[in-house]
Amino acid sequence: MTGRNKYRNAVNNVMLTLSGICAAVTVSMLFVILAYLVYNGFSSLNLDFFTQLPKPTGQVGGGMANAILGSAQVVLIASCFGLPIGFFAGIYLAEFGGKKFCMLVRYMADLLNGVPSIVIGIFAWTVLVVPMHHFSALAGGMALSLMLIPITARSTEQFLLEVPRSMREGALALGATKWKTIATVIVPAARHHDRHDSGRRPHLRRDGAAAVYRPQQRILEHRIFLADRNAAGDDFHSRRCSLRRLAQAGLGGGTCPADDGARR
């Protein structure tokens, strides 16, 4: 009996240590990447990098100003189209929708969310680049907005559903119309609620699908704010500029829609 208990204790210790090692390994990856970028790229990071255009291959100096500006443009265009569309669609899903139609829209949004960015790039190419006869920031921005829409819609829906029922009923009982309730009570409350109560979401905790959905969306939010999808990839393909310089553009992007859509 003691032998068995010893064995069980040993298994316990080994496995728990292993799980700690797993965590250490995965977290250290981030530091390896950061250290690598800083070590290799920091020395050539100066004002010129942000304000100068790239020099021809072989010349010393120059910067990535065009790529940085292009990234900003693309993200701006994407936000202008993607965020409102996703936001209103999210309101529909949470507040107005019928059951079947909503399920269909949700499924499509999740599908669109899962579509690889390279496929979105092809779509933007056939719909925007070919008719306009040239690559453009507009095409790149639209491609990116297509990726923003489903994420925004589903997050908005989740946030709104977290607002307690009593608040809706309170507003409706005071005589507010439905859209007034949404605009002045539910949406502000959802904003507020999320900031202050991010640790405890009772109804989400119980629902498996939501437990899957929630962190995914958080991850994607990181990705959207940090991804600018132009800087690195564009140059890599069209100009084959030095790999070192691309690594320096550490802020620069997951490349695909930009690669097919926004090459200029």
Partner: peptide, 12 residues
């Protein structure tokens, strides 16, 4: 920190 790993652009 682990989630930041998802924010590192794939080309990096």
């Amino acid at each position: 920190l682990v989630e930041l790993l998802a924010a590192v652009p794939s080309v990096i």
